[in-house]
Amino acid sequence: MDRRWLPALAALAVLPWVVPSSYVVHLLVQVLLWSFIYTGWSLMGRFGLVSFGHGAFMGIGAYAVVLLWNFHGLSPWLSIPIGVALAVAVAVLIGYPCFRFGIAGHYFALVTLALTEVVRSVIVALRDTTGGSLGITPNSVLKDGVTWSVQALQFADKRVFFYIALAAWAFGIWVWHRIDKSMMRYAMEAIGSDEQAAASVGVNVTRTKLAITMISAALTALGGALFGQYQQYVNPETVAGIGVSLQIVFAVIAGGMFVRFGPTVGAVFTLLLTEGLRVGIGNKVNALDSTIYGLMLVLFIIYMPTGILGKLAEKLRRARA
């Protein structure tokens, strides 16, 4: 990435030391982790591959890490790669036939929706191992005065996790940037506008789509695993299933899926909305924020389909011209 970004990253890095409370640090970690996941989704979404299956990838990443830790004592350092590999394998298993047989648009969205539900149902059905719909907590090593463990990836101080999340987010932005500069972007854009025309000029449609799907699934699974580690709790409804998939889509549309920092803006926007409502109104907030999300998703698609940042970018471009 460009050297100009280093000062910005450095400024972000001192944030946890200047903000007033650990609550704000908590919010920052949330924003970064979700931004990372949303960015992962947008790698596909921006090229017209709209997936409702990212709840599945996130769930696989999150559960693999917790289950391997609890039942086999495997360190997240080893289980995260396993979870990511598993998610990528599932992405190939679903993606390859989809792309090979030209399943796109509505159909692709619905197939991936089925995938999400399969993963969620399996998690619930294996309740003896996974805790079912009650969720599961990774065995904690933070007791008897132990405040951190690198091996268990558990830290009492949220600031440690802030740096992990920041690194993940910067990595996500870097991946986006690399794809933006690569041949893959042109290939995907060609595919997005006319698949047959793209194939006729020598783009390997199946392979290109599969590659972007694998990258996207890997980032999402990593995000899911980190999210589970940070929360020290996973639940099929919050890391898998159609609800998460829709949450991802909403945030990305709100922020703008076609610009690099759009998903990040989406994460900031949705978190501010949720937290603002929680502080402002209180207990019934769980449904109120979703009500507003849903309503805004509808309004965004009708009136601002390129999202907040996308719209701003358009305005800037027009003002300059």
């Binding site: 709209v50 829709l246 909403f250 549309i253 009500t291 999300y293 849903g294 309503l295 998703l297």
Partner: peptide, 14 residues
């Protein structure tokens, strides 16, 4: 497709 997904979230939450 997405717009009716928004309606889904809205109706369920409402």
């Amino acid at each position: 497709l997405l717009v009716t997904g928004g309606v889904l979230t809205f109706l369920q939450a409402a």
